[in-house]
Nucleic acid binder design. Structure first.
Lengths: 210, 210
DNA sequence: TGTACATCAGTGAACGCGCGTTCACTGATGTAC
DNA sequence: TGTACATCAGTGAACGCGCGTTCACTGATGTAC
């Protein structure tokens, strides 16, 4: 599955060296998906997978944690895209939109478990000292996704489909439930989940009527 | 904080070499607590911290993952002890017992965040191939804790303090909520949690009355 | 139009490090005779 | 009671490996004159 170096890499034209940056991130995300292990995403393995020499990465990233941050940012952006696609397909029903968001979230975690664990596992963060990644880089990552959820729950409340009286707090609680399920599914081998566990969590935490 | 080797280690008497096994696990747990990073628990760092030579570990564990499994088992046992202590202090009220369990769980995750992430993070599991740790070793780890929660919820139902009609499924949902909160708190730097987020999760997911 | 040159993308070799694991060993101590 | 010996706990040196990072470099290409 690793890129074979049968052809020499054709260099990017002047002024477009930035393209390699994207290729590096793509290769790193690919490694994460294949191995499911953030520790497998090393500068050398990324370079091998992208078909470049390891030092070439330093033209685009100051150090290894910076690459991981780019990977996580890319994964959050991708998750947001998927959620919006699900929203667009969900129609107008406030309840349908909220459920679509939640299920899209769980789907993403299940189909990209390595990414999900990396996004939320904090595995790549302990090196906050002596790396180029700052606290601010990390703090705002999930904000847009939380905003999507808040909006969906508020619409449910407005339509009388949720009895919640505190959209923000209940959204946090709902997200925590989703995260607990998503993370555990992404981390453990097998578990005797009740078949309706997702609906149970969503319905309860969103205070959906009926 | 590392053990200084001013005195030579006094060897364990015959037949009690097994003592070192416990010292190794204790040192490994200590490293996990200090660094918060499962990757920092290497055979060499454990040996340094225990004041022994690295190869000595092989008298007691077949390989490095086996040490991590022992660490995780020890952490689960410790968590159970803490939960039972909380239960004993909680008195007879079914609701008080359930809340004590949940808060004990959250407390443990907050005060031992490195351990908690390792217990549930699956970080040490990817090496299930070519290591001595088997799937079965991993599968049953959290069972006793889940059993404590099921029992507490069933007592609430029997006392009319919970409207749940499916103790098992609702316990799984409750635990998922607890896990989501515990894990996220243990992984992220800071987050604007609603102050009552724990009570909100517990009350909702356990279907407590009022 | 031709040419020297600065710029830029990317490389190959090398560094020092910590790791897991192996190997042959040391030396204290309990036990068989 | 004395002594040879097997057993056991633990060691020191060494291995090969992959890692992040550094350094001086190559060679294509756009640009100034």
């Amino acid at each position: 599955m690793a890129a074979s170096r049968t052809t020499t890499r054709t260099r990017n034209p002047r002024g477009e060296g930035g393209r390699l940056r994207d290729e590096i991130v793509t290769a790193a995300v690919g490694l994460l998906d294949e191995t499911g292990d953030a520790n497998a995403v090393t500068l050398r393995s990324v370079a091998r997978s992208a078909g470049i020499a390891a030092p070439s990465i330093y033209r685009h990233f100051p150090d290894q944690p910076a690459v991981m941050l780019a990977v996580v940012r890319s994964a959050f952006a991708d998750l947001e895209v998927q959620l919006r696609i699900g929203l667009d397909a969900a129609g107008e029903s406030p309840r349908g939109r909220l459920v679509a968001l939640c299920e899209g979230y769980l789907d993403y975690a299940r189909t990209h478990s390595g990414r999900y664990r990396t996004m939320f596992g904090g595995v790549w963060m302990p090196d906050l000292h002596d790396s180029s990644v700052t606290r601010e880089d990390v703090a705002t990552l999930g904000d847009t996704i939380m905003a999507l959820l808040v909006d969906a729950l508020e619409r449910c409340i407005a339509a009388g489909e949720s009895t919640s009286t505190d959209a923000h707090s209940d959204t946090v609680a709902l997200w925590l439930g989703l995260h607990g399920l998503a993370h555990q599914r992404a981390s453990t081998v097998a578990f005797p989940w009740p078949p309706d566990i997702a609906e149970r969590l969503i319905g309860t935490l969103a205070h959906l009527t009926e």
